[in-house]
């Protein structure tokens, strides 16, 4: 257990994070292989010069990518925030417990059988994420299993779904355009059209999580205490699972198997503002959005002219962070 958490003024932190989101979005839109001046773009927008280079780069390449990063980052961070409280497990996050895998395999199944139904991907991902989340939750509750058992179960589910996705792409290589990016997690090739429906899922998930922030605090105390405080535990628990799955599923449906955002961001935010979900949920949403956009910016500019899918960079950051958390909590439990 960390004892030197900062607990800064929480409202101020949220305002700063909102500013960081705007700054990240601006940088994401303006910087890249060709730098675009915001004034140049605004000028093109005002004069309706849709053929101008600045307009085309921003509207067709950078803006969808930045919006996708904002949506995916916020959604995955809040999903992680919910799952960690719900499962009372600091190591839980959508990718670690297999929820991303469940969403991913359902997207590929949907893409294989209904190649034209792109608008159905978020729904398929949501159902896959929800089924996996319920399965993991039942395992964690039913057998009174330890925190480590839950994580190992998640890793096993991720392995199975990963094998399933590879199987689908082996027997049907054309099932998903940009399959390699999907398996790693990336935002390249995103268009405004591919975000057309998914933002609704994420908005619903974020509003739901926002509305249940107080209940999320009580759920952290355990089922008996939450019930004794007047919480309708089964209903709230199910709703939280639905919102976590909605958020993770929607993000996976267009950004692929992006991992670790739901682990890194809630922990970083807890370190800064504490564990109260009243502040933690909005702070995680904002920080997750800014983080993914900035990571995507780094992954497409740092190795120019090559471009890395953002999922690779996130795995490089998230993997060691996960190991750090395992060691830290093992030590805390031993102490």
């Amino acid at each position: 257990m960390l004892k030197k958490e900062l607990h800064l003024n929480r409202r101020l932190v949220i305002i700063i994070l909102a500013g960081l989101v705007i700054l990240a979005a601006l940088l994401g839109v303006c910087l890249g292989a060709v730098n675009v001046s915001p004034l140049d773009f605004i000028d093109a927008l005002i004069h309706g010069e849709t053929g101008r280079m600045a307009y085309r780069i921003v509207m067709h390449v950078r803006l969808p990518r930045v919006l996708g990063g904002l949506l995916a980052g916020g959604a995955l961070a809040v999903s992680g925030c919910i799952l960690q409280s719900l499962l009372q497990n600091p190591l839980a996050s959508p990718n670690v417990i297999g929820v991303n895998g469940g969403a991913g395999i359902c997207v590929l199944i949907c893409a294989s059988f209904f190649p034209a139904a792109v608008s159905m991907y978020p729904m398929a991902a949501f159902l896959g994420a929800l089924l996996t989340a319920i399965l993991v939750y039942l395992i964690s509750m039913g057998s009174r299993s330890s925190k480590v058992t839950l994580i190992l179960t998640g890793i096993a589910i991720s392995s199975i779904t990963g094998a399933g996705m590879n199987f689908i792409l082996t027997v049907n290589p054309d099932a998903y355009v940009g399959a390699s990016d999907f398996l790693i997690g990336g935002l390249s090739g995103l268009t405004m059209k591919s975000l057309r429906f998914v933002w609704i899922y994420i908005l619903v998930g974020l509003i739901g999580a926002f509305m249940l922030r107080r209940e999320l605090n009580l759920i952290r105390l355990g089922q008996d205490t939450a019930k004794s405080l007047g919480l309708n535990v089964p209903v709230i628990r199910f709703l939280l699972l639905v919102f976590a799955a909605l958020l993770a599923g929607a993000a996976i449906s267009f950004a692929g198997m992006i991992g670790f955002v739901g682990l890194i961001i809630p922990h970083a935010m807890r370190f800064i503002i504490g564990h109260d979900n009243i502040y933690l949920v909005p702070a995680s949403a904002l920080a997750g959005s800014a983080f993914v956009v900035l990571c995507d910016l780094v992954s497409r500019t740092a190795f120019s002219p090559y471009e890395l899918p953002v999922g690779i960079l996130l795995a490089f950051i998230g993997g060691p962070f996960f190991i750090y958390l395992v060691v830290r909590y093992r030590k805390a439990n031993r102490d």
Binding site: M1, R220, S228, L229, R270, G274, D276
Partner: peptide, 21 residues
């Protein structure tokens, strides 16, 4: 209950949860 509750809360936060009902 007998079980120890979350230790990551501040004293004020935990006591304030008692007002939920």
């Amino acid at each position: 209950s007998q079980k120890e509750l979350a230790l990551d809360e501040t004293v004020y936060e935990l006591v304030s949860y008692g007002r939920y009902p």
